[in-house]
Design a protein around this nucleic acid. Structure first.
Lengths: 190, 190
DNA sequence: CAAAACGATGTATAAAAATACATCAAAATG
DNA sequence: CATTTTGATGTATTTTTATACATCGTTTTG
């Protein structure tokens, strides 16, 4: 069962290189030595959880324990690359999702959650958004515009997503440990 | 730096309990023994990556190494899906809160607010409940079962919560003048 | 009430990581 | 072309996991 180790090592190596760090620099930052980094990246050692978490955090990564059924969605998000290629995209996304919500509000003028969602989008409009978060908003927007305003119940999960995203960003993500968390590989390259 | 271990242990424990497995059953499935599972769940052991992956997979979980900036989006996805993921949760919550209220009623057979609350739960049982609403109910249930039936006054705010939730869902009543409703909080869990 | 299941804790041994240092060949740099 | 940086590999010691049993008090179940 060497697979997991090698993949993890490759993911860590990719993250290190993405940041332009040498093994020695990373070793110093993480409080270990270069030899160890080399062995970890090649999957030669089966490191301990505390060591892995420490190393990952040094690289700006976090371990997440995810239900296997949700993995495709999670990986889809992680694959997205924070690109500055399209600076207008952000405002388009926000504008579109606002229109979606306003349409909904014409059919449901008093919906509390809808108001919350609109508030959430207003807040998100002021926030710094990563590529992954933009992708999430786009997905929500697509589903909001596809559905009929009468099918409000089916749309609530979308609204919840918006509100949750706002909360997550507002709170700086103080993760709740109870949940389903675990870890695969954020093997986004380049 | 014990934190990461305890959080991971708690996450694994939550996952195991969610599946209704005992420590022994999980140990057998994962190829280890009960004593070890106990130590892992309490954060007493800093297990190796291969052991962690093996244990997680036995529970249907995968480790994901995610860029910290993508964490809000990842968590939004995991929570959104968690609500559809556990169809039994809803009925468990409702059943438990009903038992709580019935216990209370034995000590206070004629309490009007208590009757209202039970009616509210009956209505909520027919309603479609969001993840956030389920979390709210779970919280209320926990507090109801912790308290002694004699301390009725301290429980009234919980009863009010139930009644308000029913009203909010039934009529969209602008009943809650307070700023942010408790159930938009991002601290749900299962 | 008795038996079984459950989860926490402890002990002993073997295997492996953690730590620290030392080379060394290849690539990058001046 | 000489020097430095980089990454791979090796060695020795200490620390800790992995493994396998053994209790043991509490809760659940029959």
């Amino acid at each position: 069962m060497r697979y997991a180790l090698e993949e993890m090592g490759a993911a860590l190596k990719a993250a290190r290189e993405r940041q332009g760090l040498s093994q020695r620099e990373l070793a110093d930052a993480a409080g270990t030595d270069q030899a160890r980094i080399s062995k970890i990246e090649s999957g030669d050692i089966d490191l301990r959880l505390s060591s892995l978490v420490n190393l990952a955090r040094t690289l700006g990564l976090e371990l997440v324990l995810a239900d296997r059924r949700h993995l495709p969605a999670v990986e889809a998000i992680l694959k997205e690359r924070a690109s500055d290629a399209d600076p207008g995209r952000r405002s388009r996304v926000i504008r579109r999702i606002r229109e979606n919500l306003q349409n909904l509000q014409r059919a449901h003028p008093d919906d509390r959650q809808l108001k919350q969602a609109m508030n959430a989008v207003a807040v998100l409009n002021m926030a710094r958004l990563t590529e992954a978060e933009l992708a999430l908003l786009e997905e929500a927007s697509g589903q909001l515009s596809d559905a009929k305003p009468e099918a409000m119940d089916q749309l609530r999960p979308r609204l919840e997503t918006l509100i949750r995203l706002r909360n997550a960003k507002a709170h700086g993500a103080p993760d709740t440990p109870g949940q389903q968390p675990a870890y695969t590989l954020d093997d986004d390259d380049e």
